[in-house]
Amino acid sequence: MDTRRLVLVGFVAILLVSAVLVVGCARRAEMEPGTAVVPPAPVEPPASAETIRQIGSTTVLPIAEAWQKKFSETHPSVKIAVSGGGSGAGIEALISGTCEVASSSREIKDKEREQAAAAGVSPVEHIIAHDGIAVVVHPSNPVSELSIEQLSDMFTGKIRNWKDVGGQSGEIQIISRDSASGTYEAFKELVVTLNKTDKERDYAAEALKQASNQAVLTSVAQTKAAIGYIGLGYLDETVKALRVIPMGGGTAVEVTADAVLDGTYPVSRALYMYTNGEPTGIVKEYLDWGKGPEGQAIVAGLGFVPISK
């Protein structure tokens, strides 16, 4: 009991002393304006400073952030402000004029084009990278190819056993990203909803939700009956990537950078940045740099597919 009171008194005493100190210091600074307590006025940015505001897709966010960092090294006078919010939020910001560059993991919708036209904005599309989503299973799984239709049935819970798709009997364990992920949305669009032809379809409630590509990879590598999906850049030999048959049939395609680039691999998409009209000045310089060798090296380093080799 005594120690408790002692601690309390000590605590209050510290509070009081610090309060007195703060007040005292402030007063001293007031009285002696000549002393160097007040920091010098911040250096005004040079008049040539320009700002690029970039808002949009969380999938594109790592690219945008890495570009910003690297580009700022050679262009110290340019201020680039990058934020996420989703593809829709980015395009909305472009239309309302609150950003110069909108990043998006999907093409702009017709409805958004109409809104833009009404606001006097003309969005210009720049493809800045491609992204392939690999469908992965445990290395011991005998299944090596599946169609988009089969994958959709598996991820929605219509097909629940591997023997229905030519594998060994066993309950399919669906391993998904959590709903905050851009990959979750993309895979839902391209596979689960059969390329948006059946919007009623949604991931089965039984699907496990993992917070990162790495977590999906680990879970699939540990689980014999698992199926999951990850960004191409995360693929390694601990899991087996399936060949995917496009919708409506055809030959199964292996997930490779080439197959993503020429569009034959069905679970792939382009990543975009949009500007209002053809970019000029520093925005043009920034996007050209991004589409050039330096920017594309960053794209490849982050596990995405560069726009050309």
């Binding site: 969380t58 919010g85 939020a89 959590d178 709903s179 905050a180 939700k209 917070a211």
Partner: peptide
């Protein structure tokens, strides 16, 4: 924890 980070405001 999983969903708040990326949910639109």
């Amino acid at each position: 924890a999983a969903e708040m980070g990326e949910t639109a405001f």
